[in-house]
Amino acid sequence: MKIKLAYFVCVLTVLSTPEVYADDSKRAWSIQLENDVFSQFFGLRKSDSEASDFDGDKDYTQGVRLGLTIRDRTDLPFHSLLKDLHMIGEADDDSNRKVHVTYQAFLGQNIYTPTDITKSHLLVNDRPYAGYLYFGSNITRQKGRHLESLELDVGVIGPLSGAKQVQTTWHTLIDTREPEGWDNQLSNEPALTVIYTRAVNMPLLAKKSGEIGVGMDITPHGTLALGTVYTHVSVGGTLRIGTGLEREMMSPNRIQPSQPGSDIFSGKGMDFYTFIGIEGRAVARNAFLDGNVFSESHRIDKKRFVGEFSIGFVGFTESWRLSYTHVFRSREFVNQRKGDFFGSVSLTKLF
């Protein structure tokens, strides 16, 4: 064990900037919660900003995802094959680096509504009511500062997603207006999306291994999504400033569609960093605007190009990570009055 640990330390000190990967933990549980109500908490949206009876639910109104992440488990299927595959665009100076393979499984639900949820009739100039319940699996390969991931999401869109029940129950509990238009939601149909991402981490303010202080880096990325739920191409990047940047390669994961992130980290002690991110998407399909694939349904004319800006912070202890991200998304469809603003909270526990 001591020999293996000594070898690991040697690998970490090859570069003047530390290699980014979760070395001292193999598993993590995580939860992400996204909701547009955070915009009201921060004063970014007033309750009467769009309609006299507007109560905060509109567009992408809520998302939740629970995940389990496992790293470098050699007994898992295809581990040997995956760690030996060539990485596209791999830099020559990373040729002797160890490849780290991360597996993730998660369960999630997204909820989408038009602006005015008090109307029971179909709002033809607004987006459809829609729910999405899905199971996903992600495999990420990291070598040095290069990363690529492949994600497969399968699930159901429509009443079987349980979105109506979740939103109605929650509104009853908090004693606010009940949504009246769920009879107009998209029909039941299977959902499938494959998502491929590449990213490279580039230090801007380098620290020597073991040095304590503030660092800065930028991570450009590119993503291709194909499926019945999302089909798009996106490019963007994330700038991070703070301490403990080497504990993970990117800021924490968010719910798709989003900029890429991580769900496992390394290191000890307490650290904190802030970040900003941008992404542009060329959209061919968004099921929550384009409607059902296999049946007639309400749909709305979407924007072909969508931009996204995010800002947030990440705090670490030895085994916990808490982050908050606020997302500003440009208009996604023609009749949308304003862009979409929502917050994302992520909590991760290492084991």
Rank of each mutant, 00 (worst) to 15 (best):
L347T: 00
L322H: 02
T228F: 02
G242Y: 04
Q259F: 07
G136S: 06
N96T: 05
F351M: 07
Q165T: 14
V11H: 09
E90Q: 15
F316V: 10
F342Y: 14
G269K: 15
L347P: 00
I195M: 00
D183I: 10
I255R: 03
Q104C: 03
I174P: 11
N96Q: 06
I255W: 03
D153R: 04
I111Q: 00
K143W: 03
G343V: 01
S120W: 14
T113A: 11
G56Y: 03
V166Q: 08
S49E: 14
T118A: 11
D84V: 02
K208D: 14
V314W: 00
L186A: 09
V233I: 13
P114Y: 02
T197I: 08
G155S: 05
E90F: 12
H86S: 11
D75I: 11
L81W: 13
T74D: 08
E296S: 08
A130T: 12
P260R: 06
D72F: 04
T69H: 01
K119C: 12
I212S: 13
I311F: 12
D175N: 14
A225C: 07
E50M: 10
D92I: 14
S187L: 14
N125D: 15
R304H: 12
H232S: 09
S262P: 01
L76C: 04
K58F: 06
V20L: 11
P77V: 02
G291Q: 01
D153P: 01
L160C: 09
G136A: 08
G158E: 10
F342N: 03
Q259M: 09
M250D: 00
L76Y: 05
I88K: 15
K83W: 02
S39P: 04
G108V: 04
A22I: 01
R65I: 08
P257S: 07
T223Y: 01
S234Q: 02
G222R: 05
F42W: 15
L68E: 01
R27H: 03
R127L: 07
P77F: 03
D94P: 04
G162D: 03
K83G: 00
A199T: 04
H121E: 14
I218V: 14
I31M: 07
N96F: 04
P203V: 10
E246F: 11
S52G: 07
S25V: 10
K303Q: 08
D271T: 10
D23N: 09
D126S: 08
T348P: 00
H86R: 13
D72N: 12
V101D: 03
R145K: 10
R127D: 03
A284E: 11
R281S: 00
T172A: 15
L82D: 00
V99E: 12
K207C: 08
D93C: 12
T13I: 12
G244S: 09
K338N: 13
V334I: 15
M202R: 15
R337A: 12
V14R: 08
L81A: 12
R97D: 09
E332P: 05
F313D: 00
R254F: 07
L33V: 10
E50F: 10
Y112G: 00
E90P: 05
G315W: 05
A91P: 07
G261D: 04
A225N: 04
S30E: 05
P260H: 07
P179R: 02
V99S: 13
M216T: 09
M87T: 07
E90R: 13
D36G: 09
D301Y: 06
